[in-house]
Design a protein around this nucleic acid. Sequence first.
DNA 1: TCATTTTTGTAGCGAACGCTACGGATGTAA
DNA 2: TTACATCCGTAGCGTTCGCTACAAAAATGA
Lengths: 215, 215
Amino acid sequence: MRTGRPRSFCTDTVLDRALTVFWRHGYEGASIAELTATMGINAPSLYAAFGSKEGLFRATLKRYDDRRKVFMDEVLAATNAKTVARLFLEGVAGFAADTNGRDPPGCFSVQSGLSCTEQDIPEALAKYRAGKERLLRERFERARKEGDLPKSAAPLALARYLMAVANGMCVQASAGSSTRELLATAKLALAAWPVADEAKSKRRNVRPRATAARA
Amino acid sequence: MRTGRPRSFCTDTVLDRALTVFWRHGYEGASIAELTATMGINAPSLYAAFGSKEGLFRATLKRYDDRRKVFMDEVLAATNAKTVARLFLEGVAGFAADTNGRDPPGCFSVQSGLSCTEQDIPEALAKYRAGKERLLRERFERARKEGDLPKSAAPLALARYLMAVANGMCVQASAGSSTRELLATAKLALAAWPVADEAKSKRRNVRPRATAARA
DNA sequence: TCATTTTTGTAGCGAACGCTACGGATGTAA
DNA sequence: TTACATCCGTAGCGTTCGCTACAAAAATGA
């Protein structure tokens, strides 16, 4: 077994706490003093475990990613593209506004550092968001092959569109929008969703505008 | 005439320069040292003119608002709701990604301080965004009365939806998306736009689909 | 001219920043 | 029990932070 004095804290627990600080104040606004106070450990312990403030941030982002993975897996497992899109936006609307008493409103990956003196932080967050976009895109490529997206649909563009709507909802959530308001936005966003022709015998492959009539 | 030594700088010019610093680094990431260096004035001049870092930021936001007002006026002057929506999203796609060699990518109101230690900053930015949402909503209320939006359409929800898409595009722009990519997103977003039903349109002499063909 | 008013540049204030040296505390291995 | 490895808490490092006191400079009004 590993020798030496054992750690007195649980890594995931302190990361969850650090997450809320970065989330609420942004990377640069989060001071080591507040981080250590909230995490319940002293600065030397923090640096021994995570190396630096940026190291802590990256570990925090990884932790956030892990926590969101369950949600994404559920979303991607839906039986067709439109359901994937709906579950994704409804899910974002839910957890971005409903803090479940623990997280701040909005989305960590949008809020904690879009602009920063250290450029690494916005880049790391962009990479995180790009990962989500990629998952959606690959799912939609599959959907297109399987026929529940029309051949004219562009999986990449659809994934980007969903990410844009989701990130926009997060911006609104950070300013106090309610889940109900965000769900209304999600509903409007999904009205644009392309559906495969109902009868495949019909050889017309145009982007269906039929759903655009809804309000 | 006003006595005393005259100011050696133009307020709008130094605000434009301060704008880029806040934009690139965020409110907390922007140091007085870099601000004064970029603005080309010394700290005492900055504090005499704007009071504090927060005062400077608010003046900068006001300046940004003034610069964007021309664009919003153009958008709102369009002849029907769908054109308003299209011009708005296309405009955002344009200036968020194309920096015209001066501004950083993205949108100042999203980038400079979603999360902050001083809560006033996110609030001020939220108020700015709410103002844009209000302009769109009022325009759509008028459009609904005039008949180029169906009675079933909700002006507020449509305004929020557009703001969400716009803000989401800004997030993507800050991470390096091109104008072309953002325009694709805008196009998808507009596919959801409600149109007045044709019978009513004919009867009221409105042509909601006239411009809808363009991308 | 000279007093008055305001801005300018220099120089530096106290506080908070990210980070770490160090010695005592607490575990394992022999 | 002893030797060793690792972690914890205190205390403080050097730097940068937002901000300002002060006096010279540059305008106006008499």
